[in-house]
Amino acid sequence: MARSTEPAPSHLVPVALILLVWHGLLAADYVIERFALGAQGWPALMALMPLDALWLNVTWALGVWLGLVAALFLMLRDDASVLLFFFAMAFEVALALGVFLAAPPVLMLPVPLAVILPVLVAFPLFGWLYARSLNRRGCLH
Protein backbone atom coordinates (compact mmCIF):
# COMPACT_ATOMS: atom_id res chain seq x y z
CA MET A 1 0.00 0.00 0.00
CA ALA A 2 1.41 3.36 -0.99
CA ARG A 3 2.13 5.97 1.62
CA SER A 4 0.44 9.32 1.26
CA THR A 5 2.58 12.18 0.05
CA GLU A 6 0.16 14.86 1.18
CA PRO A 7 1.12 16.31 4.59
CA ALA A 8 -1.38 16.00 7.41
CA PRO A 9 -3.48 19.13 7.89
CA SER A 10 -3.02 20.99 11.14
CA HIS A 11 -6.61 20.31 12.20
CA LEU A 12 -6.30 16.52 11.94
CA VAL A 13 -4.99 15.94 15.46
CA PRO A 14 -7.53 18.16 17.30
CA VAL A 15 -10.46 16.73 15.33
CA ALA A 16 -9.24 13.16 15.83
CA LEU A 17 -8.77 13.84 19.56
CA ILE A 18 -12.31 15.20 19.90
CA LEU A 19 -13.71 12.15 18.12
CA LEU A 20 -11.49 9.86 20.19
CA VAL A 21 -12.61 11.43 23.47
CA TRP A 22 -16.29 11.25 22.48
CA HIS A 23 -16.14 7.62 21.42
CA GLY A 24 -13.86 6.81 24.37
CA LEU A 25 -16.47 8.15 26.78
CA LEU A 26 -19.16 6.09 25.07
CA ALA A 27 -16.91 3.01 25.29
CA ALA A 28 -16.22 3.68 28.98
CA ASP A 29 -19.95 4.04 29.58
CA TYR A 30 -20.55 0.76 27.75
CA VAL A 31 -17.95 -1.15 29.78
CA ILE A 32 -19.06 0.34 33.10
CA GLU A 33 -22.72 -0.39 32.48
CA ARG A 34 -22.30 -3.75 30.76
CA PHE A 35 -20.13 -5.18 33.51
CA ALA A 36 -21.82 -3.28 36.39
CA LEU A 37 -18.66 -1.43 37.44
CA GLY A 38 -20.24 1.96 38.12
CA ALA A 39 -21.26 3.58 41.33
CA GLN A 40 -24.84 4.54 42.13
CA GLY A 41 -24.47 8.11 40.88
CA TRP A 42 -22.73 7.24 37.60
CA PRO A 43 -24.37 9.28 34.80
CA ALA A 44 -24.81 6.32 32.48
CA LEU A 45 -26.24 6.85 29.04
CA MET A 46 -26.60 3.17 28.23
CA ALA A 47 -28.69 2.47 31.32
CA LEU A 48 -31.07 5.32 30.53
CA MET A 49 -31.92 4.18 27.02
CA PRO A 50 -34.56 1.51 26.42
CA LEU A 51 -32.26 -1.19 25.05
CA ASP A 52 -34.61 -4.07 25.79
CA ALA A 53 -34.24 -5.97 22.52
CA LEU A 54 -31.08 -7.92 21.76
CA TRP A 55 -30.63 -6.23 18.39
CA LEU A 56 -30.62 -2.81 20.09
CA ASN A 57 -27.86 -3.97 22.44
CA VAL A 58 -25.86 -5.30 19.50
CA THR A 59 -26.26 -2.12 17.43
CA TRP A 60 -25.30 -0.01 20.45
CA ALA A 61 -22.16 -2.09 21.02
CA LEU A 62 -21.17 -2.05 17.34
CA GLY A 63 -21.76 1.70 17.02
CA VAL A 64 -19.69 2.45 20.12
CA TRP A 65 -16.75 0.16 19.39
CA LEU A 66 -16.56 0.81 15.64
CA GLY A 67 -16.57 4.54 16.36
CA LEU A 68 -13.72 4.15 18.85
CA VAL A 69 -11.64 2.07 16.44
CA ALA A 70 -12.39 4.53 13.63
CA ALA A 71 -11.21 7.46 15.76
CA LEU A 72 -8.00 5.56 16.59
CA PHE A 73 -7.42 4.82 12.90
CA LEU A 74 -8.05 8.46 12.02
CA MET A 75 -5.43 9.47 14.57
CA LEU A 76 -3.02 7.09 12.80
CA ARG A 77 -4.03 8.54 9.39
CA ASP A 78 -5.31 5.18 8.19
CA ASP A 79 -7.89 5.20 5.41
CA ALA A 80 -9.82 2.36 7.08
CA SER A 81 -11.29 5.05 9.34
CA VAL A 82 -13.58 6.12 6.49
CA LEU A 83 -15.30 2.75 6.30
CA LEU A 84 -15.31 2.28 10.08
CA PHE A 85 -16.93 5.68 10.67
CA PHE A 86 -19.51 4.87 8.01
CA PHE A 87 -20.49 1.62 9.69
CA ALA A 88 -20.46 3.24 13.14
CA MET A 89 -22.83 5.88 11.78
CA ALA A 90 -25.06 3.22 10.19
CA PHE A 91 -25.32 1.32 13.47
CA GLU A 92 -26.06 4.52 15.40
CA VAL A 93 -28.82 5.39 12.89
CA ALA A 94 -30.30 1.91 13.34
CA LEU A 95 -30.06 2.34 17.12
CA ALA A 96 -31.70 5.76 16.98
CA LEU A 97 -34.60 4.44 14.91
CA GLY A 98 -35.04 1.40 17.13
CA VAL A 99 -34.87 3.36 20.37
CA PHE A 100 -37.20 6.04 19.02
CA LEU A 101 -39.76 3.44 17.99
CA ALA A 102 -39.38 1.34 21.17
CA ALA A 103 -39.26 4.20 23.68
CA PRO A 104 -42.29 4.98 25.80
CA PRO A 105 -43.94 8.32 24.99
CA VAL A 106 -42.40 10.04 28.00
CA LEU A 107 -38.95 8.70 28.75
CA MET A 108 -37.45 9.98 32.00
CA LEU A 109 -34.05 11.18 30.81
CA PRO A 110 -32.14 14.24 32.00
CA VAL A 111 -31.98 15.31 28.35
CA PRO A 112 -34.81 14.55 25.91
CA LEU A 113 -34.36 11.53 23.70
CA ALA A 114 -34.82 13.74 20.64
CA VAL A 115 -31.57 15.51 21.58
CA ILE A 116 -29.49 12.47 22.56
CA LEU A 117 -30.16 10.36 19.48
CA PRO A 118 -29.16 12.99 16.86
CA VAL A 119 -25.93 13.69 18.78
CA LEU A 120 -25.13 9.97 18.80
CA VAL A 121 -25.54 9.96 15.00
CA ALA A 122 -23.85 13.33 14.38
CA PHE A 123 -20.41 12.43 15.75
CA PRO A 124 -19.78 9.37 13.55
CA LEU A 125 -21.41 11.19 10.62
CA PHE A 126 -18.99 14.08 11.06
CA GLY A 127 -16.10 11.65 11.47
CA TRP A 128 -17.07 9.86 8.26
CA LEU A 129 -17.39 13.07 6.24
CA TYR A 130 -14.11 14.39 7.65
CA ALA A 131 -12.16 11.18 7.07
CA ARG A 132 -13.64 10.84 3.58
CA SER A 133 -12.55 14.36 2.64
CA LEU A 134 -9.03 13.70 3.96
CA ASN A 135 -8.90 10.42 2.06
CA ARG A 136 -9.97 12.11 -1.17
CA ARG A 137 -7.19 14.69 -0.73
CA GLY A 138 -4.66 11.91 -0.20
CA CYS A 139 -3.87 12.69 3.45
CA LEU A 140 -4.73 9.18 4.68
CA HIS A 141 -2.83 6.04 3.78
Rank of each mutant, 00 (worst) to 15 (best):
V111M: 14
L101F: 15
I116F: 04
V106M: 05
L129M: 15
L97R: 07
S133I: 01
L97K: 04
L101H: 12
N135H: 15
L129Q: 11
L107N: 04
M108I: 05
L101S: 11
N135F: 08
V115Y: 14
W128G: 00
A131G: 09
N135T: 03
P110N: 11
C139S: 09
F123S: 07
L120M: 12
L97P: 03
F123P: 02
I116H: 03
I116Y: 04
V99F: 08
P104H: 13
Y130A: 15
L107C: 04
A131L: 05
G138N: 02
A103L: 09
R136S: 14
V111N: 09
Y130M: 14
F126P: 00
P110F: 13
P110R: 13
L120E: 08
V115S: 13
V119S: 05
I116K: 03
P124W: 13
V115R: 09
W128Q: 01
L129C: 14
L129R: 11
L109E: 02
V115F: 14
N135V: 01
F126R: 00
G127V: 08
V119G: 04
A122Y: 12
I116W: 04
R136C: 09
A96I: 06
G127L: 09
W128F: 12
N135D: 15
F100C: 13
L109I: 02
A103H: 08
S133V: 03
R137F: 06
M108Y: 08
V99A: 11
G138A: 00
L117V: 06
L117T: 07
G98E: 09
V119N: 03
V111I: 15
A122K: 08
A103V: 09
V121T: 10
P105W: 06
W128S: 00
L117C: 07
L109P: 01
A96F: 07
